[in-house]
């Protein structure tokens, strides 16, 4: 695709990841990585269940919801019955399949994705309120987490012309 020359290009994205399902976390990670790859500054703020993505014990074990997800289909495009999604092991199987499909596209596991984003200068923060709520300390979180901060602190990092805040 031809890129239009933007006269007033985007300079910074501040991405808030508040959910912990595979697709929510990866949407945030892809956007942050895509930004630094284009020379756009990226700052990420993980809150509520999004914290799973930067919690050492959980980050590589994310799941996708198989219940109440109308977009979910079986291989071949047949609708995925919600009742099936309730069976033990189904969610794990579907999650494993999603991870495999992403790996085939060279999309890395969460910990490696954070390595890539921070290698490009992206910054990772955790939400203080959510960390307190889930009783998480800095040592429970990825070494890439710069600090546990309040949303006010994060807004303070979100200033400047041509900055966008993205919520997923």
């Amino acid at each position: 695709m031809t890129e239009k020359k933007e006269e007033n290009p985007l300079k910074k994205v501040c991405i808030i990841c508040a959910k912990g399902a595979i697709e929510d976390v990866y949407a945030s990670l892809v956007m942050a990585n895509g930004a630094v790859m284009e020379g756009i500054e990226a700052k990420m703020f993980f809150t509520f269940f999004g914290l799973d993505a930067i919690t050492k014990k959980k980050m590589n074990r994310l799941h996708t919801g198989t219940v109440g997800n109308p977009a979910m289909t079986m291989p071949g495009g047949i609708p995925f019955p919600t009742l099936l999604g309730m069976l033990p092991g189904v969610e794990a199987g579907v999650s494993a399949m999603m991870k495999k499909q992403m790996a085939d596209l060279d999309i890395p596991p969460v910990d490696e994705f954070l390595d890539m984003i921070t290698a490009g200068g992206g910054e990772i923060y955790a939400c203080k309120l959510a960390a307190d709520m889930f009783k998480l300390k800095k040592e429970d979180l990825s070494e890439h987490v710069i600090d546990i901060i309040t949303i006010g602190d994060f807004y303070a990092l979100a200033g400047g012309d041509n900055t966008q805040i993205i919520f997923t």
Binding site: V36, M37, D106, P108, E112, D115, M116, A119, G120, G121
Partner: peptide, 19 residues
């Protein structure tokens, strides 16, 4: 299909070095 991840694993340069 090239990605920065692939270049990072080429053994030539890591991703930080590529940036």
């Amino acid at each position: 299909v090239l990605t920065i991840r692939k270049v990072g694993k080429s053994g030539l340069v890591d991703i930080k070095g590529l940036y």
